[in-house]
């Protein structure tokens, strides 16, 4: 078990270094940050001086090593555009994105799982067929379109929900601000959370349904029924647990992409999260912010993958033994 975790950790580190290298070198070519930082009147000498002071004239290798060294200490330099420490910038924006992702992730998982189970158990029901047809919309409509449609219906026509920003936020401690505690904050969460979570929800739902139907056909479910276990015990105790093994992987990866795809939703709803920060940074070739953002997303994916692997262990006893047997 410990050997397994260590091995996975090592793999994770390699992945992180690779991502760092890719993001770093990639951003060397996206444009010249100097031109967006200085006015048009700046002389060539001024530009050179700025370039020097930012360390942009050093070799790529030494720049990368400096970047890595700083990154290890959570230090991603100063934003070219905002002249603020990048880490601070991201931390400031992170609560908005994390809260949005958590709400839509939970929404997607809970609804996806229950609808998936429902449609699998009531395969021929009218409601199931309606849900399945409806889910096609979720799968096929692009996120920004769903967002715009929701804004049009609920914000413009019905005027029920806000379409813009986070509402009022309350500071929790020094570095976290939450929208959960105010009425306007909770209202503001609804539309973006649905927009962001809809695709993931339909995906999870369809996956759960397919897996569940597969499991319900197996012999051990027939045998469980033949032993007179209640349909509750058969469906939820035996079938659902077996369904969860593949669902966990996908759901974990989906949570990662919810955070990554928040970029689009945040832009549509003018949500003050890291995604919006990233988009603005791209526009201004703010390399330190972009690099830090990519590193952060990579880290989130790596951590989620690690958790998914550990959950596998918890759910499926066969994995535990295969490892143990190899060790003998």
């Amino acid at each position: 078990m410990i050997a397994f975790i260590l091995r996975r950790l090592l793999q994770s580190i390699i992945v992180m270094v690779a991502v760092a290298a890719v993001s770093f070198t990639l951003f060397r070519f996206v444009g010249d940050p100097i031109s967006s930082m200085v006015g048009q009147e700046a002389s060539i000498a001024d530009r050179e001086a700025l370039r020097d002071s930012l360390g942009l004239n050093d070799s790529i290798i030494s720049q990368f090593l400096r970047f890595m060294g700083d990154a290890l200490q959570g230090e991603f330099g100063i934003s070219y555009r905002l002249q603020m420490p990048v880490t601070e910038l991201i931390l400031q924006r992170l609560p908005a994105t994390v809260e949005l992702a958590l709400v839509s992730g939970t929404l997607a998982f809970v609804l996806g799982l229950s609808l998936g189970v429902y449609t699998a158990l009531k395969r021929r029901g009218i409601l199931s067929n309606l849900i399945m047809t409806g889910s096609l919309i979720g799968v096929s409509l692009p996120t920004f379109l769903i967002g715009v449609l929701l804004i049009w219906v609920f914000a413009v026509e019905l005027r029920w929900l806000p379409s813009n920003g986070r509402g009022e936020v309350v500071a929790l401690g020094d570095w976290w601000s939450t929208g959960f505690l105010t009425h306007s904050g909770r209202l503001a969460l609804i539309l973006p959370a649905i927009t962001l979570g809809l695709y993931q929800m339909t995906l999870i739902m369809r996956l759960v349904r397919a897996e569940m139907l597969e499991v319900l056909r197996t012999d051990y479910i027939k045998f469980a029924r033949a032993r007179g276990l209640s349909s509750r015990a058969v469906n939820f105790g035996h079938a659902l647990k077996n369904t969860l093994v593949p669902v966990i992987t996908i759901t974990g990866l989906q949570l990662g992409s919810i955070i990554a795809f928040a970029i689009i939703t945040e832009t549509v709803f003018n949500w003050p999260g890291v995604g919006a920060l990233f988009i603005n940074s791209v526009r201004f070739v703010d390399v330190p912010v972009m690099a830090a953002y990519l590193m952060m997303i990579a880290l989130i994916f790596v951590v989620i993958n690690l958790i998914v692997d550990l959950l596998y262990y918890a759910v499926d006893p066969r994995l535990r033994v295969d490892r143990a047997a190899k060790a003998h």
């Binding site: 197996t218 012999d219 051990y220 045998f223 033949a226 032993r227 007179g228 759910v315 499926d316 006893p317």
Partner: peptide
Amino acid sequence: MRKIRGKRIGMVFQDPLTSLNPLYT
């Protein structure tokens, strides 16, 4: 009928490799 299954009529299936739920002891 569920109460009769297992309690009054038991059943043994063909393939023991797939008759048991792999996730439970």
